[in-house]
Simulated scan of single mutants.
Amino acid sequence: MSASRLGVGLIGAHTWADKAHLPGYQAHEQVDLIAVCDIDPDRARAMAEKYGAKKVYTDPEQLIADPDVQMVDVCTPTFTHLPLSLAAIAGGKHVLSEKPLHTEAAPAFDAAARADAAGVRTKLGFTFRYSPAIRQLKSWIADGTLGEIFHIHGFEQNSQWLDPDFPLRQVTPGAPRDRLIPSSIIGYGSHLIDLMRWLGGEFGSVASTMKNFIPDRVIRGEPGRQRILIEDGAVALVEYANGTQGMLQTSYIAVGNYPGVEIRVYGSKGAAVARLISEFGTAETLKFATAEEVEFKPFEIGTSALPPGTTLATPWPELYYRNLVRHFVDEILEDRPQECTFYDGAKSQEIVDAIILAHQERRWVDLPGHSA
């Protein structure tokens, strides 16, 4: 793409757009924020005024059809991600979608194939790939600093919904209330699985257990407490295709601060622990040890690893999303290789599906092979 600037249109002007997506576009010197769309016109106007968007829409189809919009950002409830993304692809637009693209893998693979056929680029909002600590960890694996990788442990756990009166969001309309509804493994687990797959390679097989700990809770948009068996804790074992062993845990109710992501990698030459947890004014920490010096020491992330205008004191949604936006815009404008695409989202969902099946059938489940 030869254009020096990228016209962006955002659909969904809720809190996450305000905290993460829109600051990323505002900070990128080669982005023109063309339009903001929301079913609430006042909300759309407020976000457009705050971040300098030129147009306001209440109909996503009109935003997608706008010739000045070259890339569409889908920042809406989960069940709308796929239809809006498919509409953007059909309209010849590059598209960034919040995760998950769909709660089943097959439709996500289909969307990835449609994007490739249309010649447009995609990115999934896997925020934590764009943590400076995680990207440093990835480089240590790639350059052999950690040696042969033996174990990868991943956790995404915080007490965001430990209080049953804190409204739970993203419950699909019409979800059954009489059986376990996979939730933390989808909302949190998809992030974690993407990180573990990006760092360690393809998953071979999984075994798992899922549980509802708090059966009565407030659901956003519904009156009072509701009896709903939301899966608010899951644990899985992973056998990687290359022989690495893995373990992951997701939880809505484990005491700790948001976002609660921790990745531990153990290799033949060394080990590292990245904690993406807002604590004492710092967004993340990274520690490193070697086989000769086994006590973990802090590793300082240099300013060159941070998005321009940020520090490790920048709130993590803005810190990571500035990086995500910068990568996607640069991939489009500079024709760089794609990273973290709809295909990666489909692979993550495929693993989520396998973890759910493993729990339901109380067995190891093998992952099918899909070529990129």
Rank of each mutant, 00 (worst) to 15 (best):
R5P: 10
I11Y: 09
W16D: 13
D18E: 14
D18H: 11
K19P: 04
A35D: 07
R43D: 06
A48W: 06
K50L: 10
Y57Q: 02
E61S: 13
D68K: 08
V69C: 00
D73F: 09
C75N: 11
F79G: 08
H81M: 00
L82I: 02
L84N: 11
V95N: 00
L101R: 08
A112V: 13
A112W: 14
A117I: 10
R129M: 15
W140G: 15
Q157K: 14
N158G: 08
S159P: 07
W161N: 13
V171G: 09
P173C: 10
A175R: 08
R179C: 00
S184L: 01
S184D: 06
S190H: 04
S190M: 06
R197M: 09
E202P: 06
E202A: 10
G204F: 04
S208L: 05
T209W: 02
D216Y: 09
R217S: 12
G221M: 05
R225T: 11
Q226P: 03
I230M: 07
L237N: 14
G246S: 12
L248M: 15
G256V: 03
G256M: 11
Y258R: 10
V265E: 10
G270A: 07
E279T: 13
F280Q: 09
G281L: 00
F288C: 02
F296R: 01
A305W: 02
P317W: 03
R322G: 02
R326H: 08
R326Y: 02
F328C: 01
I332N: 04
L333A: 02
D335Q: 12
C340W: 05
F342G: 07
F342M: 12
D344A: 10
S348P: 11
Q349A: 12
Q349D: 04
P368Y: 09
